[in-house]
Write a protein that binds this DNA or RNA. Structure first.
Lengths: 124, 124
DNA sequence: TCTATATTCAACCACATGGTTGAATTAGAG
DNA sequence: CTCTAATTCAACCATGTGGTTGAATATAGA
């Protein structure tokens, strides 16, 4: 497993916590876009959109290729996979009925012979 | 697909963007915890931890049951599933090789007879 | 070279966030 | 009833965030 450092997840989830940035990612899922193309749908100034793009970039969610005077952005899906994987830890909790969950956890712990129901220090 | 309102996702991802709160969720995956139990591992004041718990609660990620003078929290996995589902949209992007992705998207669009994802700059 | 386009930078502002401390609330225990 | 424990509330503070505007930078094109 990846033992992702917490700082990385901070940046990823923080970047995803803004609707403008999520929409920009959605937009980029249709192919590469320049900064102005990404900014176009929003009321805000170009400078503001540029900041959002920088946030996405420094979270590693997009990559930027400078082509002459235009900056072309494309999706960088790795960190999204990381976030997805982090969430997958909880998959059992929304998949199983709660009364079965306890048994499952106990079984898994027995299999690993790990002390489980207190996974402190797993992330962070 | 669920067409989750954006506000909900804002709160969920924002709540997940803090290491203390992620750790608290991890802790709660081991079973219910009181507020003081949740706060115990951290240096911060109880009031500060209480605020984090409130953030998790108002994002719907935990539920609180008041038992006498103690508040017992447990995980509420629904919103985690929502976030997971939101991220799943991008699964193809980290699963497939990029040169195959374009074809896939085109095929899907053709199948739905939707206007394809703005094929400008798709060549190269 | 001159001008227009694409983008960032810097300064600034309002408001949110994450933390503190001390007082208030509520309930169990003697 | 009183004391103590569990928790929140309120006020406050420093810093971060998301937005603005105007100037700066760099490149494309005439």
């Amino acid at each position: 497993m990846v033992e992702l450092e917490t700082e990385r997840l901070d940046a990823i989830f923080h970047a995803l916590g803004d609707p403008t940035r999520r929409q920009m990612l959605r937009d980029l899922s249709g192919g590469e876009r320049t900064v102005s193309q990404l900014a176009e749908p929003y009321e805000m100034s170009l400078a503001a959109a540029s900041k959002h793009i920088k946030a996405l970039e420094s979270a590693g969610l997009i990559r930027r290729e400078v082509r002459g005077r235009t900056h072309v952005c494309h999706l960088e899906p790795g960190p999204l996979a990381n976030a997805h994987e982090w969430l997958s830890f909880y998959e059992a909790f929304w998949t199983l009925r709660l009364d079965r969950l306890e048994d499952l956890l106990r079984d898994e712990d027995a299999a690993k012979s790990n002390p489980p129901p207190k996974p402190e220090g797993d992330d962070r």
